[in-house]
């Protein structure tokens, strides 16, 4: 087993009656990019605050790099870079000055700090703007400065709380690429919280889905789909067209589809159908459609993304 960067056991946090984080157990290995995915108010930020020792823990334990963060928050903060949601800078200072201030707070000697600041600014692509006041930075530049700010202390773990909020699609792509590159190059563990499914999908090695303070599922994205859609993990959508050779009514066609092995459910509505099945049925279904004299307008396999995992969960919740 690889070394664990973050280890959370039985973590609970309450605000009065409201349970923000409920008995959370989670571990992240060294050098891994872990995505914490959940809707707003799921307790992601609270968990992150507890990781850094910025808020008190009601029960359970949190260890970052093997250090208990509720007891030795300063030691943890020395090793962890945290980019808060909607990070702020001193607007009257230049990007460089903001970085140097943080470097000084980390007790990095002045000369070394200057060198490292220039390096990190180059890494995040802000070399040219380093002597510009932060007030004149764009949203994307601020986020990149935030990343530089996290990197300047040479952390072992980076925690990013909704870092892509408010960036344009191109900016998001670049920013995420930057994080992946940095993590791979320097072997930094990254904990990334987001409610943007696709970003997490692109970026993370492993994902934890977090709803109402509970970790619902955890693992690689592909295995997540299996965990949540154990019954019918494949969906086919298609449309048929009647031709002269049509020998069956639509209802009969639907019944025939249902009778095929592996098909769980068929929904036929006005020449369009949705089939849920345990395995990939696209080939036999298309053959069946054509053999019964219909024309196949379209047939598409639906891949399960996190979107569907999300929706699926909420559906289940409603049923309960």
């Amino acid at each position: 087993m690889a070394e664990k960067s973050i280890e959370i056991i039985g973590l609970t946090k309450r605000y009065g009656e409201h349970v923000a984080v409920d008995n959370l157990t989670l571990s992240v290995e060294k050098g891994e990019i872990f995505g914490l995915l959940g809707p707003n108010g799921a307790g992601k930020s609270t968990t992150i605050l507890m990781l850094l020792g910025l808020t008190e823990i009601d029960s359970g334990s949190v260890k970052v790099c093997g250090i208990d963060s509720s007891r030795y928050p300063l030691e943890v903060k020395r090793k962890v870079g945290y980019l808060p949601e909607d990070v702020g800078f001193y607007n009257d200072y230049t990007g460089m000055q903001n970085l140097l201030y943080v470097a000084r707070l980390n007790n990095i000697p002045m000369e070394e700090a200057q060198k490292t600041a220039l390096e990190t600014l180059a890494e995040v692509g802000l070399e040219e703007a380093k002597d510009k006041k932060v007030a004149g930075y764009s949203r994307g530049m601020r986020q990149r400065l935030g990343l530089a700010d996290v990197l300047i202390k040479k952390p072992e773990v980076i925690i990013l709380d909704e870092p892509t909020l408010g960036l344009d699609p191109e900016g998001v792509k670049k920013f995420l690429q930057l994080i992946v590159d940095l993590s791979r190059k320097k072997g930094i563990t990254v904990l990334f919280s987001s409610h943007h499914l696709h970003q997490v999908q692109q970026l993370c090695d492993r994902v934890g889905i977090f709803v109402k303070g509970k970790l619902l599922a955890e693992g690689k994205i592909s295995s997540l789909a299996e965990q949540l859609f154990s019954k019918n993990a494949h969906t086919l959508e298609g449309a048929v067209a009647e031709t002269e050779e049509t020998s069956l009514s639509l209802k009969e066609l639907a019944r025939k589809m249902e009778q095929m092995e592996g098909v769980a459910q068929v929904e036929m509505r006005d020449k369009r159908f949705v089939i849920a099945s345990k395995k990939d049925m696209s080939v036999p279904i298309s053959r069946l459609v054509v053999n019964s004299g219909y024309g196949l307008h379209s047939l598409s396999k639906k891949e399960y993304g996190l979107d569907d995992i999300y929706h699926q969960y909420f559906q289940e919740e409603k049923q309960i």
């Binding site: 909607d86 990070v87 702020g88 800078f89």
Partner: peptide
């Protein structure tokens, strides 16, 4: 309000 407080508190200062 500027959002700098949480950034500063994430640094190793009491």
């Amino acid at each position: 309000n500027r959002g700098t407080l949480s950034r500063i508190l994430a640094q190793p200062v009491p």
